[in-house]
Simulated assay, not measured.
Amino acid sequence: MNSIIRRAGSDITEPLRRFLEGDLGSWLRVEEYREEGTMVVRAEVPGIDPEQDVDITLVGNELQIDVRHQEKSEHKDKRGYRSEFKYGTFSRAITLPGPVDENDIRASYNDGVLEVRIPVPDEAAAASRKIPITRGAAGRATGTSMGEATSAGQM
């Protein structure tokens, strides 16, 4: 199965890749949405210290969020003492729709919810651009005219 995943490379979405690799336990679940030119990524991660337990990095067009979580519960009664630890690192890589400036990214943590706001270019403006067409000598790159290329059988 891993060889299939390696061959498919980036064509497999992260949730599917993690499912196939059996790695859903360390996957940070997030919600993503757009709000007035800003991509908002939110993750419910209660009981953490965001200054010590969260790393957010930007590599190219990918936002990487890593959260370390540790939970400890203790039980004391007449028969003895029991302590349980639950800990792990949860991560998520989110592909951004285009290049962003890391200085514009804002992250906050409130009531157990980590929120990352990323300003993104307007999709309508970024989706298509009209390329101007020039006429005459300015459009020739090689010095060969259309007539010469056609008569030479190159078209």
Rank of each mutant, 00 (worst) to 15 (best):
M1S: 07
M1H: 15
D11G: 09
I12R: 03
L16N: 01
R18S: 08
L20A: 06
G22R: 02
D23H: 04
G25R: 14
S26K: 08
R29I: 14
E32K: 15
Y33D: 09
Y33E: 03
R34F: 11
E36F: 07
G37T: 05
G37C: 01
T38I: 13
V40W: 00
V40S: 00
V40E: 09
R42M: 15
V45Q: 02
G47Y: 05
D49L: 13
D49F: 14
D49N: 08
E51P: 03
E51H: 10
D53I: 15
L58S: 04
G60R: 07
E62I: 14
L63V: 11
Q64S: 11
D66T: 08
V67R: 00
R68Y: 06
Q70Y: 07
E74K: 11
H75K: 14
D77E: 13
G80C: 15
S83Q: 15
F85H: 01
F85P: 01
G88M: 04
G88N: 02
T89K: 05
S91Y: 08
A93Y: 01
I94R: 02
P99L: 13
E102L: 11
D104G: 00
A107D: 07
N110P: 07
N110D: 09
G112C: 08
V113H: 01
V113A: 09
E115C: 10
R117I: 02
E123V: 14
A126N: 06
R129N: 12
K130M: 14
I131M: 10
P132V: 01
I133E: 12
I133A: 00
G136R: 08
A138W: 11
G139N: 12
G139M: 03
A141G: 13
G147S: 12
A149M: 10
A149R: 13
G153Q: 05
